[in-house]
Nucleic acid binder design. Sequence first.
DNA 1: ACAACTGATACTATATTGATATCAATTAAG
DNA 2: CTTAATTGATATCAATATAGTATCAGTTGT
Lengths: 162, 162
Amino acid sequence: MKVLTKKTDYAIRALLMLGAKKGAYVSAKAIASEQDMPYQFLRGVLQEMIRHHLIVSKEGVQGGFMLAKDPDEIGVRQLIEIFQGKVQVSECMFRRQICANRSRCVLRHEIMRIEQVVHHEFEQVTIGKLLRKLHAGANMMPSLRDGEKPDSLKLKEGVVLQ
Amino acid sequence: MKVLTKKTDYAIRALLMLGAKKGAYVSAKAIASEQDMPYQFLRGVLQEMIRHHLIVSKEGVQGGFMLAKDPDEIGVRQLIEIFQGKVQVSECMFRRQICANRSRCVLRHEIMRIEQVVHHEFEQVTIGKLLRKLHAGANMMPSLRDGEKPDSLKLKEGVVLQ
DNA sequence: ACAACTGATACTATATTGATATCAATTAAG
DNA sequence: CTTAATTGATATCAATATAGTATCAGTTGT
């Protein structure tokens, strides 16, 4: 039972990178190489996030992606819903009028209780929170200071990889 | 994101039926017809549970399946592990030596915390507990208005019941 | 003997997941 | 103005997981 698929995983980590360099456009290429993700696959993930207004993009040279909202407003739960669909007990159950049989109904009741717990937990984890943890630990992913102009949007080798 | 696959769903409900008729052998045919499951598919599920010593079988006429252990000792978590594999954040992460990069590491830490919560919750739900609810007889559906449900766990908009 | 069973497999179909490839449009910089 | 770096939008593909079906051999109560 996989909690996070690749898409969700890549999405979260891409957002963390965008959050770390807020204000600047970061290209898919830069994210893919730094975070070791397949380039085209990541692009699909980024486009999906644009459709959901989590990020904005700029085309052309020096283009890329940027957060469209406060990192604290982007929750892991939302990302899971975007890339893996709503957390549900068992698809069919929701379409039924009334529980087909009693044992399924009792089971569903229990599982839905757990579902609520899971929802609640994932709701707590936001990109903002993760970013703060990231910075609290070490200066592995330094954000760019105002006025700083790197000749490339890539971070230096060795800065991120430990 | 599906919490329970058909196999797990069928397994739980089959176990509930065996638990309800403890001491007697119940045939796959009887379970399948009563619980509305595909016969051959269910048989595969039952065989898997035999391999895991959750149930025992008797061949021939009047044969069937019976619980092999106390219903309170059979947890939904174990069933999920049998039919859907161990609950894990993202497969690759566990095979890696050390978190490849910091953002993945921070993310994993958070998700693993949630994983523990999920584990704990599923651990609580046993076949025995479900059986008792089954016999308690309260009709908790479709509005789920039974006294046990605390306010904090009330359904949020978007969680469709029927 | 035989019908009602399980054991053990082999097989098929469909959906999901993960990934790659292509081409047009946009843009900054030389 | 040209060109390279980039996103937008798709189309395609392979691998895996999920759901379900079929078959045949062996066991057992009547």
